[in-house]
Design a protein around this nucleic acid. Structure first.
Length: 255
DNA sequence: ATGGCCTCGGTTCGAGGA
């Protein structure tokens, strides 16, 4: 089973990339973030024609998440049940015996911003909910744009980024508290090339300079991590014309 | 040098992203 995540930064603009990527990479499940589409505008027909079922929840202009699956999805949940939030940032579904949670964690903007406090509160709400999900679903996967680079090796220039949003210690502590539930960072289960990232700024030729961050992650519960045989970042879509600023992450699980 | 680019909504600029 292959599980993938990709922040597409507007599904309206990126649908051709998504369909081409799925044709080239027929994963079982693809989690999308920043669809930026209200539900009435979601391209259900095109995605079903590509052989995928889809669950989604969106809003105008910002946020929006979706799960694309080759297999039937059950028990679809939108948003964090125990956390009041108008922003559409979470969708979950059960595929086979795997519980898949797709999340677009808030950016935070800056440490001085109210959005940063919202981010930290949001992460607490996510963890509280996931602690219950973990108990109910031993095979649990959390995929998405975390907007957190967990360690300095996930940052192209740790000195320049020190203390900034996306790398600050409270954010990293929140990430570790997710791991404390029993999750493993699928990417770090394996030897990986150095300086491999999942996001590069559109500005300053950042992609060409590989000035990126690893902020898109796949966390696997212990039973899934035991069966995980690979986790790769696919930089190919970032090289296309009019790309998303993020690129897909894919985990292979032998089940 | 504290910007740069991309997307959206709704107009030709501001907000937000990361």
């Amino acid at each position: 089973m292959k599980l993938a995540t990709w922040n597409v930064n507007s599904l309206k603009v990126r649908l051709p990339h998504v369909l081409q990527w799925l044709a080239d990479n027929p994963v079982d499940v693809l989690c999308l973030q920043e669809t930026k589409l209200t539900d009435d505008k979601f391209p259900v027909g095109e995605i079903e024609a590509a052989g995928y079922q889809v669950a989604f929840t969106g809003q105008k202009t910002y946020n929006g998440v979706a799960i694309l699956s080759k297999h039937p999805m059950a028990d679809i949940v939108k948003n964090i049940p125990s956390f009041e939030d108008e922003q559409q940032r979470v969708i979950a579904a059960t595929v086979g015996d795997v519980r898949v949670v797709c999340a677009y964690i808030p950016n935070g903007q800056s440490l001085e911003s109210e959005k940063y406090l919202y981010k930290l509160k949001w992460l607490e709400g996510l963890r509280d909910w996931l602690s219950r999900e973990y108990a109910a679903h031993p095979k649990l996967a959390l995929l998405g744009d975390y907007n957190i680079a967990p360690e300095d090796r996930d940052v192209h220039d740790p000195a320049a980024w020190q203390g900034q949003v996306l790398v600050s210690e409270p954010e990293r502590a929140a990430f570790r508290r997710l791991l404390d539930l029993g999750f493993k960072d699928a990417f770090r289960l394996f030897e990986q090339p150095e300086k491999l990232f999942s996001w590069w700024d559109y500005r300053q030729l950042a992609f060409r300079r590989n000035a990126g961050l690893r902020i898109d992650h796949i966390l696997l519960s212990a039973p899934l991590a035991e069966k995980c045989s690979a986790c790769v970042i696919d930089k190919a879509p970032r090289k296309l014309e009019q790309p998303s600023d993020h690129t897909p992450v894919v985990a292979t699980i032998d089940c």
